[in-house]
Write a protein that binds this DNA or RNA. Structure first.
Lengths: 239, 239
DNA sequence: ACCTGAACACCGTTCAAGT
DNA sequence: ACCTGAACACCGTTCAAGT
């Protein structure tokens, strides 16, 4: 039987755009932004494109590759300082780190993908290149700079993951930030109720330990790191 | 029909031990050690205990709780320096960090669980307590010490995750370390083939950037961090 | 109180078949 | 070359029913 005239095709909008890797990655990021990294499944992305999960495999080799492509696309939003100023290498390194953190946390828990990953995408490499250039220009020994870019990346990823950890799972209408603060209050009460003879310092430093201040804590860690890196400028690199 | 005499029960060994939380956690760690964190599913742990997944929910509230219980049980293996020596606070802080790293990496990718988690288990709290005690005794301002224990924890977790990232997925008879080195060789070739005009520093520092030396890199980052922390001893904490 | 079978609503990936 | 339906071998969690 032929399909009668005026009958619509099998699906309402069968992805009028042809599938491309770009479209797949874009759609995946849309799901990420709306519902977090866990919601980015092959099936969910395919559904959003009006197709089945098998169709994605013509454009990405597997879910891990899709995640890495998403990360590098997000990394494209990172604005690097132009022009780089070697005299202000520490400040500019700090600016880059805070900018990376801003971009990562603006895309839910995308930082989980970066965690422990050796950068290969063009935009992630551009960030590493900028960091290296600043340190070399600032007089940091090359070997130290090579290790430091790694350490710095680890620190940024870890902080961004931490920042989104307790808000990532929040679903529906609840305010993620309120949710996190409520959780932190519980932790504070728990720490206060700890036996002071076994955990004297935790109990007495409870407010410092549970101070949420994300940005302040991040900057502190950055200062610690960069003070440490700077201390290698004079000598050859021994501890 | 009654079961004939000498007939074995429905299953060969229907978990002769009654199920307890301890037994569930122990079994989960056995699966972790053998096959990595991804293999630790409710169904897999239940199977190992000769029962169904639903049975575990009488002893752990969900998979996340099981993971946190696993982490604190692993943390029980961390040997803290006794007695603590305030005069050697930096060395001892470094020793603790390296010991935590040793214990974490000896249990596959368990560090992924720690990543971004506020410690609540008794053994994890004992580690934080020891770190705080050393810094306070060493003259680090309390507020700085509170932030530093966080930064230090983030750094240790990030390094341990990185260390196990590319070996966690290795299955079967392949040597995980060989697998990782082969992967690093690919990265090195990739970096070498990058356009030098866009990524001059990455290309020229390729060997420093792809030097696997896990322990050396970790120690360097630790030194950077602790140099930074120590720099706060004189003054009040400004950047 | 503890345990279970069965079901629910999902996963990632493969593959033969279609266009 | 690209896309698809269907299948395979899994997930975490719930719940009524059993002991």
């Amino acid at each position: 039987m032929p399909t009668p005239p005026g009958r619509r095709p099998r699906r309402a909008a069968p992805s009028r755009q042809p599938l491309t890797q770009e479209l797949v990655v874009e759609t995946a990021i849309a799901v990420l932004d709306a519902e977090g990294l866990e919601a980015v499944t092959m099936r969910r992305v395919a559904q959003e494109l009006g197709t089945g999960p098998a169709s994605l495999y013509a454009h990405v080799s597997d879910k891990q590759e899709l995640r890495e492509l998403m990360l590098d696309r997000v990394a494209a939003e990172i604005r690097l300082p132009a022009p780089p100023d070697p005299a202000r290498w520490r400040e500019q390194l700090k600016e880059i780190a805070m900018e990376v953190r801003r971009v990562y946390t603006s895309h839910r828990d995308i930082a989980k993908v970066s965690m422990g990953l050796i950068p290969t995408g063009p935009h992630l490499l551009a960030v590493a290149e900028a960091q290296l250039a600043l340190m070399i220009a600032g007089g940091v020994p090359p070997k130290i700079a090579g290790l430091a870019v790694d350490t710095l990346g680890m620190y940024i990823d870890a902080d961004a993951v931490e920042d989104t950890f307790y808000t990532a799972a929040v679903k529906g209408d609840e305010d993620p930030w309120e949710h996190f603060k409520k959780y932190l209050d519980q932790i504070r009460d728990y720490y206060k109720a700890l036996p002071p003879d076994r955990y004297p310092n935790i109990v007495s430093l409870v407010d410092d330990l549970t101070d949420e201040g994300g940005a302040e804590r991040f900057e502190f860690g950055l200062d610690v790191l960069l003070r440490g890196v700077a201390s290698y400028i004079e000598d050859g690199g021994g501890a």
